[in-house]
């Protein structure tokens, strides 16, 4: 099925197609690369690479990802100075900065440094917004390994887990409305009908859902604070359950709370992948930061209780992950 076997970095390509900003960024990157190279040429060739791991806070997913990052980074023989700091200490960063989480990214952006900056555990839209809204970083190399999973992978998971599902509903708010084009495109690629409805505010969520529920076979949740609101989430699950509408979500917490399926990368996966990615860039040898992309690694969670309640037969998470891997040709 060649139509389905798409390269998994499709989203990166999509991101590159997002218009003139991307092209300008590429041009800037070339200039920066030249400057960096000039700078590095002046330094002793064997000097150890400085890496600062900047955590939004101590513990939690940030710590977990940072540990995985360090482990993965230490797997080759290169000598590096790795420091782990938290934002709360308002530290001075030095060398390559790997920001774990939104707060760490915000801090790193605010330091007005020229050091390369790699953001992890940050949603794609948040990253784009923050970078564009923070002035004084035009010459800096900034890239991210997004927290989100690409739309195409999410839709493929639905198709794999529930082959009978044809139409997929997605609720967006003004916050995420601009992604609808990408969603439709991804749907077309995967071969599913995508129905996107907009809820202007929290009150409209249920009425929009009412309209959607009649036409679709499953609901795909996107990270959107209006739709996926902790206040109304329980009611949302009850409602979809009553409508017998399976939910596909983007985190293990949502699966535990009542979604049928969840597709996400764990902090460990993200940390390890980011380290591997950074290693591959060989920044200490004059390499440059690659463009931001979605993670290649992922985990599939299945809530079998929900599956039973909805009278659906769903394979286990690892099995579905393997199947998705096989499909993407990894």
């Amino acid at each position: 099925m060649p139509a389905v076997r798409l390269p998994f970095d499709l989203s990166a390509a999509c991101a590159a197609q997002r218009g003139m900003t991307c092209l300008a960024g590429l041009f800037q990157a070339v200039i920066r690369f030249s400057l960096l190279w000039l700078t590095l040429a002046g330094l002793p060739a064997h000097a150890a690479q400085q890496v600062t791991l900047l955590l939004s806070e101590q513990g939690g997913i940030y710590q977990e990802a940072a540990q995985a990052f360090e482990l993965e980074l230490a797997r080759d023989s290169e000598k590096r100075n790795v420091r782990t700091l938290t934002v709360d200490a308002s530290p001075r960063t030095n060398g390559v900065v790997v920001a774990f989480g939104v707060r760490a990214l915000q801090y790193a952006l605010s330091t007005q440094s020229d050091d390369p900056l790699l953001a992890v555990l940050v949603p794609a839209t948040t990253f784009e917004k923050m970078v564009s809204q923070t002035p004084g970083n035009s010459r800096r190399q900034i890239s991210a390994l997004y927290l989100d999973q690409p739309f195409s992978r999410q839709l493929r998971l639905i198709r794999t887990a529930m082959p009978q599902a044809r139409r997929i509903g997605i609720l967006v708010s003004p916050e995420t409305e601009e992604q609808s084009t990408d969603l439709h495109r991804a749907g077309k690629l995967v071969g599913l009908d995508v129905d996107v409805r907009t809820a202007r505010n929290q009150e409209q969520v249920f009425s929009s859902l009412d309209a959607l529920a009649r036409n679709v076979d499953a609901l795909l949740l996107l990270p959107d604070s209006t739709v996926v609101n902790r206040d109304i989430l329980r009611i949302l699950f009850v409602k979809t359950y009553r409508e017998r509408l399976p939910i596909v979500a983007y985190s293990s917490g949502l699966v535990q709370a009542g979604s049928l399926l969840g597709l996400h990368a764990t902090p460990t996966q993200i940390g390890a992948e980011a380290a591997e990615w950074l290693r591959g860039m060989s920044l200490d040898k004059g390499g440059r930061l690659a463009a931001s992309r979605y993670p290649k690694s992922f985990t599939v969670d299945v809530n079998q209780s929900v599956a039973r309640s909805l009278e659906l037969t769903i394979s286990s998470g690892p099995l579905l992950a393997m199947e998705l891997d096989r499909e993407s040709g990894r």
């Binding site: 990270p223 996926v228 709370a257």
Partner: peptide, 21 residues
């Protein structure tokens, strides 16, 4: 009383859990 669902959502970093209302 609407009690917020206490779930870990990495996409909602920094957002405090609202109190029951």
């Amino acid at each position: 009383v609407l009690t917020p669902l206490a779930i870990v959502d990495p996409f909602q970093q920094g957002q405090a859990l609202s109190s029951p209302r």
